[in-house]
Design a binder for these strands. Structure first.
Length: 211
DNA sequence: ATCCCGAGGG
DNA sequence: CCCTCTGGAT
């Protein structure tokens, strides 16, 4: 299912993807893609963010929401990249997570889509769906990441993340999931009654559309 | 636990 | 009017 699910943010470099992912917090990808062309043209390199005028940057990203904190993060990001990473985006999780505005989810997005390093991007969709599927009951994102990581080989992690997010965005919504339109309705333990036990969940992983 | 924050949908 | 949208820092 969803064999060609992919990152829907527009980008042409690790830096662009990193900035776009920061902007995508609590915002649709479509809107992020509306502001990034102008943003990337104005600030082509990390040094340009480091030297950016705060109010001008805020104006360019305002429509994505949380624009003051996002502008702060992006300016700090540019500075730290220049001071500690030669102006380049580091390709490892530990360094990425230390950058301002970059948490584990954002770091894994950059690793998976710009560096080809397998990563599970546990965002709100990912967590909600794997709990509905009965794959884990954890709510802490790191615990969810480890639990789901045990169920699939690393080579499948990035595509699996995109598939789950795709499905979450279009069908398995937070409040009113479109179970009537869901191709997984007869497979999903949350369609009928409540969650299944661990053996059932393991079988769902082995035989399910995401394997 | 709370704040940051605009835009679009129901 | 209320809710949600691929979070992260305090």
């Amino acid at each position: 299912m969803y064999p060609d699910a992919h990152c829907e943010l527009d980008f042409t470099s690790p830096l662009e993807l990193l900035v776009a992912t920061i902007l995508s917090a609590q915002c649709t990808d479509k809107r992020v893609n509306q502001v990034t062309p102008g943003l990337f043209a104005r600030y082509p390199a990390a040094a340009d963010y480091a030297a950016a005028d705060r109010e001008e940057l805020e104006g360019l990203i305002r429509s994505t929401g949380f624009y003051r904190s996002k502008a702060n993060s992006i300016i700090g990001l540019g500075r730290k990249l220049c001071e500690e990473h030669g102006g380049e985006v580091p390709g490892d999780l530990d360094a990425l997570v230390k950058l301002p505005g970059v948490g584990r989810k954002t770091a894994n997005v950059v690793l998976g889509n710009a560096f080809g390093v397998p990563g599970l991007t546990v965002d709100t969709h990912f967590g909600r769906l794997v709990r509905r599927f009965g794959w884990t009951a954890e709510t802490d994102p790191v615990k969810v990441e480890h639990a789901v990581g045990e169920l699939f080989p690393p080579k499948d992690w990035t595509l699996l993340s995109h598939r789950l997010i795709w499905h979450g965005r279009r069908i398995c919504h937070s409040r009113r999931p479109a179970c009537g339109a869901c191709p997984l309705a007869h497979w999903c333990p949350s369609f009928g009654e409540g969650p299944t036990d661990e053996a059932d969940a393991a079988a769902l992983v082995r035989n399910g559309p995401f394997s």
